[in-house]
């Protein structure tokens, strides 16, 4: 990417960032919802682990660290504005971008980055407060290799989810009803469980985990956090990272092709 072109997307992110601050109340409300959900899950697992400290082959500190960790990884991976793309596609506002010298994907990716930053900042603040308040035992990973792998996996998960989510948005080219919310919610429900948002996936029976762990959804939250907790050995980590890279390539290719196909359809109906 040329420098001038980088500046372009930087400005997009900047504008999006200030847009996020206009409705502070909105954003705060969104964070409140996240915290409430986190607290409920935290206390559920706290109750489970306090009577059965070694159940599921997890120590209490590992389990609670996992649950609190999902909050930050959620902000990084799932924090997004690009969900609005589905509305723009079904309403025809997509045209606004098509006539400009700007890439629609990069445009939304830049806006997502701004949104993710904002969310991560808040998430870290919330977690800090919760840590001081609840004082749970926390699992601290100190192995630099694990930490670097964890960071890398989180970033890969972020990119992977971006293309995945964009693919869902693009279904509105073909199914524009209700701005694409039915299919989106369906995905939300599935992801809530299959990405490891409520519990680490490896507590599932081995046969089930063998399947769920291989699905792309498992990489969004479960894999980065497993790496952080040191529950994957080096070869498993390398395999996971490769699989994520592979999925990124596949999803990206699919997203690009779908977009091109979608645009033809778009034209054909004259929206």
């Amino acid at each position: 990417m040329r420098i001038s072109s980088f500046k372009k997307y930087f400005q997009v992110a900047k504008t999006s960032w200030s847009g996020g601050f206009v409705y502070r109340l909105n954003f705060v409300m969104w964070r409140v919802r996240n915290v409430v959900q986190l607290i409920a899950i935290y206390f559920l697992w706290f109750a489970v682990m306090s009577r059965n400290p070694t159940a599921f082959n997890y120590s209490t500190s590992q389990m609670l660290t996992y649950i609190l960790g999902t909050s930050i990884i959620r902000a990084l991976v799932f924090g997004q504005r690009s969900i609005d793309a589905q509305g723009e596609i079904s309403s025809g506002d997509l045209n606004n971008y098509l006539v400009k010298p700007i890439s629609y994907f990069r445009y939304w990716f830049s806006r997502d980055i701004a949104d993710k930053l904002l969310n991560i900042l808040f998430s870290i603040g919330e977690i800090t407060i919760l840590l001081f308040w609840l004082r749970p035992e926390i699992y601290l990973q100190t192995n630099p290799l694990m930490l670097v792998s964890f960071l890398l996996a989180s970033l890969l998960a972020m990119v992977m989810y971006f293309y995945f989510s964009f693919l869902i948005s693009m279904t509105t080219f073909w199914i524009p009803e209700e701005n694409g919310w039915p299919q989106r919610f369906f995905i939300f429900v599935i992801l809530e469980f299959f990405s490891g948002g409520l519990f680490p996936l490896d507590i599932l029976p081995p046969a089930v985990y063998a399947v769920l762990g291989k699905l792309p959804s498992a990489y969004f939250l479960n894999t980065p956090l497993q790496i952080y907790l040191g529950r994957l050995d080096l070869s498993q980590i390398v395999t996971s990272l490769f699989m994520m890279a592979f999925w990124i390539v596949v999803l990206r290719l699919l997203a690009n092709r779908t977009f091109r196909k979608g645009l033809k359809i778009y034209g054909a109906y004259g929206r």
Binding site: Y23, N26, M29, R33, V36, Q37, I39
Partner: peptide, 15 residues
């Protein structure tokens, strides 16, 4: 215009 104001209370359902 507080977007999503209507979603504030039901977020308690997780509780």
């Amino acid at each position: 215009r507080i977007e999503n104001l209507h979603l504030l209370f039901p977020s308690l359902r997780q509780i």
